[in-house]
Amino acid sequence: MLNKRILFPLGAVAVASTFLVACGGSDSDEQQVQMGTFTLAVSDAPVDEADEVWACFNAIELVGNDQGSQVFTIGEDTNTIAANDVCKDENGDTIPNTRGINLLEFTGSASENLLSGVQVVAGTYGQLRLEMANGSYVQVGTESIPLSVPSNELKFDSVTIDVAGTSSYTIEFDLRQALVNPVGQAGYFLKPRGVRLVNDLAVGHVEGTIAESLLINTEGCTVAPADTSDPVASVYFYSGADLAMDTLADIGGAEENEPYTSAGVFFDGATEYSFEVGFVAAGDYTLAWTCELNDDPEADDAITFNGTQTITVNGGEAVTTVTFSD
């Protein structure tokens, strides 16, 4: 079993939805139908120990708004992304109408469209469903480890298409919280926890650094690792300003404040130790950093934080920068 040092701001998959306004025609005796254009994309944040994380997508479904169920199947509907041959069944045959995407290719604010330019009726939909297929897996070295999604479906509530402008959403897969490798069970599981739907107009991106001198002077921290793909520290995000350090839980912890997301801190091979988190909902956050990297998402671990800082994230996909220093 792999060491579960899974760090993701997803990080981790993000699904972006963009709606553009148009109007359907009608005569004076008929109700005018307001239409919108629907685009859905995926994005992600990195996962330690994994070289690739392949997710198999099958369809996107909108439910409600007096429209029943509208399903857009990969490779069938002209506005969907093309199917590929990544997703295989138990016999090694390609599963039809699937798109396999390596989530690690779309980290931070990067994304990949699953659905582009579909006309749907404007209004509020009670649910958005992301239909998954079999065949997902995590690649570690030469080993392919199966990745399962319960019921092969992820559900999200309340998507509103605004007739007055553009409405954009992102489904963010925070893999450090959502991706688990339970003891005694074969393979990885992608759980709904840590997967969230955010409005792109109300999210920002965070970029930060930790001073090398701070790492040098902190017991247990590593500097200038030979392998720059290994994190040297982790930064945890908690909703709210100036939270007391002893109230901050690890992932799966029992303390008062649960992490909103977390990210790995990586050495650039020269002088900088940086981290990045995309699609963070606007608001105030307490950030806490640690050099303890073994955080089991299924357990209450004793993580020691070395310092905190409060930041304010602004909407409109603005970038907030933060520095931890002596």
Rank of each mutant, 00 (worst) to 15 (best):
V198H: 14
T228M: 13
D284Q: 15
I251D: 08
T160H: 09
Y188D: 01
V138K: 00
T78V: 13
A288P: 07
P9R: 07
S144C: 01
K4C: 03
L287H: 12
D227I: 06
L190P: 03
A41G: 14
Y238P: 06
A224W: 06
L115F: 11
D268V: 11
N3M: 08
K191F: 02
C56W: 03
S148F: 07
Q31Y: 12
T218V: 06
R176F: 01
D66H: 12
D246L: 05
L248T: 02
V195G: 03
T228C: 08
T320Y: 07
T218K: 09
N3F: 04
L287Q: 11
Y236G: 03
D301E: 14
N257G: 00
Q177N: 06
L147M: 15
T37L: 12
F324Y: 11
R99D: 00
G307Y: 08
T166E: 14
E298K: 05
L7Y: 12
T39D: 14
E112F: 15
S109V: 13
L179A: 01
S229T: 15
Q32E: 14
S158K: 13
Q70Y: 06
L175Y: 03
E131I: 15
E112K: 15
G68N: 08
D174I: 00
Q185W: 01
F266R: 10
L2N: 12
Y273T: 11
G11H: 07
G100S: 05
D230L: 15
F267Q: 10
G315R: 10
F8V: 03
Q119H: 09
L179D: 01
I311P: 04
S158W: 06
N97H: 15
Y285S: 09
N217A: 15
D174H: 03
A164I: 02
L115A: 11
E255C: 00
R193L: 06
E76Y: 02
A12M: 12
T80S: 11
T170L: 10
I251L: 02
A133M: 05
S151V: 06
D89E: 07
W289M: 12
I210A: 03
T228H: 07
G165D: 10
D44G: 11
V42R: 00
V198M: 06
L2Q: 09
A263D: 01
I161H: 02
A41R: 07
V198N: 11
E90N: 12
E49C: 00
E143W: 01
A110Y: 09
S325Q: 13
E61Q: 14
T160M: 09
Y188T: 01
N84I: 04
